[in-house]
Design a protein around this nucleic acid. Structure first.
Length: 903
RNA sequence: GGGCCCGUGGUCUAGUGGUUAUGACGUCGCCUUGACAUGGCGAAGUUCCGGGGUUCGAAUCCCCGCGGGCCCA
C-alpha cells in the first residue's frame, strides 16, 4: 500500500486489487508476537478470566486437519472472548509420553526397547519429541492460532510430571489407586499392559474350528466351536446355555480336553450364545473378556498360557515357545491327525488390537497398578450431567462409556518413555512403598525409598518400580495444572471450555472428569465443545491410507489460513462431521477479496473527520438508516451465535451481510451521493465507516489476519490501538435498530432489484439511463415511504424522472403487428406462405387483431382463401399510458406497478 | 450386536411443526457500471431416502424399513 496526497488534502490509500494472504499472514503473525497480544495476564485480578483447556496434542510431528478444525474452533472462542474483555488463558501443551514415540524411535534406530539402557532410550525419545514439537509449533503459528506460548508445557518435563506423581501419591493414600493382579489387555508387540480405551476393534477373517471333547468315562463326544484352538491348554471349563435341550443331560459331567486330556466340568451360563457354533463353548484363561467374567463368576482356576512376548508358556507343554499362530497351526494339525477336528469354517470376527501397532491384544494377568474408576462411576455420570455439552447429545456418549466400564483402569505400563511410578518394593515380601510428596519428582531407580524398613515385614532391602504410568495419567490433570495445582487458583478452575473431537470423548473427557473428581471432588470443566471428524473430499474419514489426506500446510498453501479457517467454521454445524472442501476454501478467499475491494472503494472516504461526526447532526437517508439497523441486528445475532458456539451461523450471517447487503446493495446505493456535491454524503460516509469497521471486528475471530490488514490499512491511523485484536467487541446500539428504516430499505432494494432485472432482460447496460419511471402504489402508506426513498432509487438506477402515484395506472394496448408463425404455416401451406405474409403486412394490425379475437381469421390473397387460427400468428402489442409507450413491471407484496419509458 | 448422529436440487450444506425449502460450488443466459469480470444481474434445477401414522398443516414429531457415519462391544 502507498499513500499519496490528494488535492483536497486528504490521504488516499492506494490499495492493491488483490488481497494476498500468503504475504500478509506471516507479516501479522510476527507483529502479534512482538506485541504480545495473546498474553494471559496472571497479575490482572480485575478482568474476568476465561480458561480454555486445550487438549495437548501428541507430538507426532504432523498436524492433522482434524486438529486444525479443533484448534480453529477454540481459537475463534479465544479471540472472541478476549474482545469481550476476558483475560483469556489459552495454553498450549504437549502430551509427550507414550508408545508412539517409542515405536518411532525403535523404528528409526532399528532397535527394541530393551536394547538400550532406559536413560539412553528415553534420551532418544526426548530428542525426537523436541524436533516434532518444533515442527508443530511452527505449523500452529502459521494457522494463526492465538496461543500464549508463555504457557507452554510438556508432560515430560520434571515440573509437569512432579504433579503427575503427586496425583498418584495422593490417590494412593486415599485408596483410589491400588496394586493388584487382574487380567489386563496386553500388547505382545509393545510388551505392555494397555487400557480398554487403547484397544481398537476391527473385523478380521478367522477360522472357526469344531473340536470333539470326549465325555470322561463314556464313549461319547461333545463338539465345541472355537476360533482360538491354541487356547486349548488353558481350557478350564466348558459351558452351555442354561436349559439347552441338546446338552441338558450332560451338564455336571466331566470332559477331556484334547490334545492333553485335562478333565474339566460342563456348566451352564446365560452368557453362552446357543446359536453360535454348536452351542458349546470352552472357557479358557483368557481368550477374551467373556472368559474373564466366567472365571470370576464360577471361581475357575487361571492358567498362564501366554507370556509377555506373545509366546506359549510352559503350560502349553510340548507347544511351549511357539508363537500363538504357530501353536494354533500345530494344535489343529494334531487334532486332525487324532480325528478330533470335525470341520473348519470361515468367519468374520471382531478382534481387539493395540491402537498403535494393530497387533491383536491378548489378556494376561500380571501384577499392575489400577485406579478405582468403577467406584467413581456414579460421580462421573453425575458430573457429565451437570456439564454443558455442545452439541447437547454428546453427553450421552460419555455416560454410555462410563456405564459400560467393567474393569478398573490399569495405569501401569511396561515401557520406558513415561512418568516413573514413584514406588519401591520390599525385596523379601514384595510390599510396595510409595514416595513421600516431598521427594517429588522422583525416579525410584536413583533415589532411596522414604522408609528404612518395610512397614510390613521389616525388611531393609528395596528395589525400584520399573513400570511407568499410562500417558493418560499425565494428560488427565491438565486443568488442575493450568490452575497451578497443588496451589489451586480458583479463578482458573474449573476451566470454562473443554474442546475436543467426538473420537476422544471416551478418553480425554472421561479421564479428565474421573481424575479431577478423584483429586478435587469436582468436575474440571463447565462446557464441553465437540467438533466432528474431518472427512476427505470423497466423504470418507480423512486418512493417508485412503489417499484422501490433505496436509494443513497444503490446505493453507493456496489462499492462506484465513480461507481455511472459514471452511472450518462454516463447513458444517458444530459437532457434525465435516468434509474437507477446496471450494469452501476458495469461497473463503473470494469473500475476503470481495470485502477487500469494497474497503478499497470506501477507503478514501474513511478518515478521522468522518469517524468523529455526530450522528445526531447527520442527514441520514433511509438507505443509511437501513444499513445501520441491519448492522446492529447483525452484531446481536453474531454475538448470540458465538455464545452458543454456532460458528457456521455466525460466519454465514457476516458473509451474507457483507457481500449482499453491503456490497451488492448499499455501496451501489450511495455511490451517486459520494461523487457529487450531495449534502447527505457525510451521512453515507459515516455509515460506511462504521459498517466496514464493525464488519472487520466481527470477522476478527474468524479471519484474524484479514481483519488486521483491513483495520491497519483503513482505520488504524485514527485509532490508538495497535491491533484489531485488542479492540473491544462491537456493542449493539439499539438506537440504530429501526423497524421502519428496514422496511424502507427493503422497499428500495425491491424496486432497484426489479429495475436491474428489467435492464438485464432487455440486455441494457446497467448504467444506461431510464428517462422516466412511474411507480403506482396501492396504498398511501407505501406511496409515502416510496417518496422518501425516491432519490435513492433514481440516483442508483439512473432514472431521469421518477414519479410516485397512488392507485392503478390507466393502460391501453396498441397492436403493432400481426405476424405469421412460419414454423406452423410453412409445412401446411408450402409456397402459399408468401401470400399470407404479404396479406398480413398490408392489412391494418388493429383490424386483424379484432377479427382474430372473434374466431378464425379469414383472408383472401392471390385469389385464394385462407383461414388462420390463433396459434398460427403472433400479435405484437405495446402498452400505452397517457399516449406514450411504456413497459410494465408488476410487483406483489406490496402491490406496485412500475411504468418505464426506456427510449 | 448396542448407543448416538445423519439421509434435503448434479455435489456439499442450512433448516426441529406454517418460509415462494437456505447458502455455496457447478450449469445456462445476459451485462465491461467510476471497488471487484478472480465481478455483477438473472435463469433452470430438489418436494426434502421409502412406507405408514399424528396434525387443520410435517423436510421438521412418532412407528417400520432401507442406506451412511461416529463411538463402542
Amino acid at each position: 500500500m502507498r499513500l499519496s496526497r490528494k488535492a483536497k488534502g486528504e490521504y488516499q490509500v492506494e490499495v492493491s486489487k488483490d488481497y494476498d494472504p500468503l504475504k500478509i499472514e506471516p507479516k501479522w503473525q510476527e507483529r502479534w508476537e512482538e506485541l504480545d497480544v495473546y498474553r494471559f495476564d496472571r497479575e490482572d485480578k480485575k478482568k474476568p478470566t476465561y480458561v480454555i483447556d486445550t487438549p495437548p496434542p501428541y507430538p507426532s510431528g504432523e498436524f492433522h486437519m482434524g486438529t486444525a478444525l479443533n484448534w480453529t474452533y477454540f481459537d475463534i472462542v479465544a479471540r472472541y472472548k478476549r474482545m469481550r474483555g476476558f483475560n483469556v488463558l489459552f495454553p498450549q501443551g504437549w502430551d509427550c509420553h507414550g508408545l508412539p514415540t517409542e515405536v518411532q524411535v525403535e523404528k528409526s534406530y532399528g532397535i527394541r526397547k530393551g536394547d538400550l539402557p532406559p536413560e539412553k532410550f528415553r534420551g532418544l525419545c526426548v530428542k525426537l519429541t523436541e524436533e516434532n514439537i518444533k515442527h508443530m509449533r511452527k505449523e500452529m503459528n502459521s494457522l494463526g492460532f492465538s496461543i500464549d506460548w508463555s504457557t507452554e508445557y510438556r508432560t515430560m518435563d520434571p515440573d509437569y510430571y512432579r504433579r503427575t506423581q503427586l496425583s498418584f501419591v495422593q490417590l494412593y493414600k486415599r485408596d483410589l489407586i491400588y496394586r493388584g493382579e487382574h487380567p489386563v489387555n496386553w500388547c505382545p508387540r509393545c510388551e505392555t499392559a494397555i487400557a480398554d480405551a487403547e484397544v481398537e476393534y476391527e473385523d478380521r477373517e478367522a477360522m472357526l474350528s469344531y473340536i470333539k471333547f470326549k465325555l470322561h468315562g463314556e464313549n461319547e463326544y461333545l463338539t465345541i466351536a472355537t476360533t482360538r484352538p491354541e487356547y486349548l491348554p488353558a481350557c478350564v471349563v466348558v459351558a452351555v446355555y442354561p436349559g439347552d435341550k441338546r446338552y441338558k443331560k450332560h451338564v455336571g459331567k466331566k470332559l477331556e480336553v484334547p490334545p492333553f486330556g485335562q478333565v474339566v466340568g460342563l456348566i451352564e451360563d446365560h452368557e453362552v450364545d446357543p446359536e453360535f457354533g454348536t452351542g458349546v463353548v470352552m472357557v479358557c484363561t483368557f481368550g477374551d473378556k467373556t472368559d474373564v467374567r466366567w472365571v470370576k463368576r464360577h471361581k475357575l482356576p487361571v492358567v498362564k498360557l501366554i507370556d509377555e512376548k506373545g509366546k506359549m508358556s510352559e503350560a502349553a507343554d510340548k507347544y511351549a515357545g511357539l508363537t500363538l499362530e504357530e501353536c494354533k497351526r500345530a494344535i489343529v494339525d494334531d487334532l486332525r491327525k487324532a480325528g478330533l477336528l470335525v470341520k473348519q469354517e470361515k468367519l468374520t470376527q471382531s478382534v481387539g488390537a493395540c491402537w498403535r501397532c494393530e497387533t491383536p491384544v491378548e489378556i494376561l494377568t500380571k501384577p499392575q497398578w489400577f485406579m478405582r474408576v468403577l467406584d467413581l462411576k456414579d460421580k462421573v455420570i453425575e458430573g457429565a450431567k451437570r456439564v454443558r455439552w455442545v452439541p447437547e447429545h454428546m453427553r450421552r456418549r460419555l455416560i454410555d462409556w462410563a456405564e459400560s466400564m467393567d474393569w478398573d483402569w490399569v495405569i501401569s505400563r511396561q515401557r520406558i518413555f513415561a512418568t516413573p511410578i514413584p514406588a519401591w518394593y520390599c525385596t523379601s515380601c514384595r510390599e510396595p512403598v510409595v514416595a513421600e510428596e516431598r521427594q517429588l519428582p522422583v525416579n525410584p531407580a536413583k533415589v532411596k525409598p522414604p522408609v528404612e524398613r518395610c512397614p510390613k515385614c521389616g525388611g531393609e532391602s528395596f528395589e525400584p518400580e520399573q513400570d511407568v504410568l499410562d500417558t493418560w495419567m499425565d494428560s488427565s490433570i491438565t486443568i488442575a495444572v493450568h490452575a497451578g495445582w497443588p496451589e489451586l487458583d480458583r479463578r482458573l478452575f474449573p476451566a470454562d471450555l473443554q474442546p475436543n473431537g467426538t473420537d476422544i470423548i471416551r478418553t480425554w473427557d472421561y479421564y479428565l472428569l474421573v481424575r479431577h473428581l478423584a483429586l478435587l471432588g469436582e468436575a474440571p470443566y463447565r462446557t464441553v465443545l465437540i467438533n466432528g471428524m474431518v472427512f476427505g473430499e470423497d466423504g470418507r474419514k480423512m486418512s493417508k491410507s485412503l489417499g484422501n489426506y490433505v496436509d494443513t500446510t497444503v490446505a493453507r498453501g493456496k489462499y492462506g489460513t484465513d480461507a481455511l479457517r472459514q471452511w472450518a467454521a462454516i463447513g458444517a454445524s458444530t459437532g457434525s462431521d465435516i468434509p474437507f472442501s477446496w471450494k469452501d476454501v476458495d469461497f473463503g478467499y473470494r469473500f475476503m477479496r470481495k470485502f477487500w475491494n469494497a474497503a478499497r472503494f470506501a477507503g478514501p472516504h474513511l478518515n478521522a473527520r468522518i469517524a468523529g461526526l455526530d450522528p445526531k447532526k447527520l442527514k441520514f437517508r433511509p438507505v443509511d438508516r437501513w444499513i445501520l439497523s441491519r448492522l446492529n441486528r447483525l452484531i446481536e445475532q453474531v454475538t448470540g451465535w458465538l455464545e452458543d458456539f454456532q460458528f457456521n451461523h455466525a460466519l454465514g450471517a457476516i458473509q451474507t451481510f457483507v457481500w449482499h447487503e453491503l456490497c451488492d446493495m448499499y455501496i451501489e446505493e450511495v455511490k451517486h451521493r459520494l461523487y457529487g456535491d450531495d449534502p447527505t454524503s457525510d451521512a453515507a460516509r459515516y455509515a460506511l465507516y462504521h459498517v466496514m469497521l464493525t464488519a472487520a471486528k466481527l470477522l476478527a475471530p474468524f479471519t484474524p489476519h484479514f481483519s488486521e490488514e483491513v483495520y491497519q490499512t483503513h482505520f488504524a491511523k485514527d485509532h490508538p490501538y495497535p491491533s484489531v485484536h485488542v479492540l473491544s467487541w462491537p456493542e449493539v446500539n439499539k438506537k440504530f435498530i429501526d423497524e421502519s428504516a428496514e422496511r424502507a430499505g427493503e422497499l428500495t432494494n425491491l424496486i432497484i432489484g426489479a429495475l436491474r432485472q428489467f435492464k438485464s432482460e432487455r440486455k441494457m447496460a446497467l448504467s444506461r439511463e431510464l428517462p422516466s419511471v412511474e411507480i403506482y402504489a396501492s396504498s398511501r402508506e407505501v406511496a409515502k415511504r416510496l417518496k422518501e426513498v425516491g432519490d435513492d432509487i433514481a440516483g442508483t438506477m439512473r432514472v431521469g424522472k421518477l414519479s410516485i402515484k397512488v392507485g392503478e395506472p390507466k393502460l391501453t394496448e396498441r397492436v403493432l403487428a400481426v405476424e405469421p408463425e412460419l414454423a406452423k404455416l410453412g409445412p401446411r401451406l408450402r409456397a402459399d406462405v408468401k401470400l399470407i405474409v404479404q396479406a398480413l403486412r398490408e392489412a391494418k394490425p388493429e383490424d386483424l387483431a379484432k377479427r382474430l379475437v372473434k374466431g378464425k381469421l379469414k383472408l383472401r390473397a392471390g385469389g385464394k382463401r385462407f383461414e388462420l387460427a390463433f396459434e398460427d400468428v403472433r400479435v405484437i402489442k405495446e402498452t400505452v399510458s397517457a399516449g406514450r409507450k411504456v413497459e410494465v413491471i408488476d410487483i406483489q407484496k406490496p402491490a406496485l406497478t412500475l411504468l418505464i419509458t426506456s427510449s
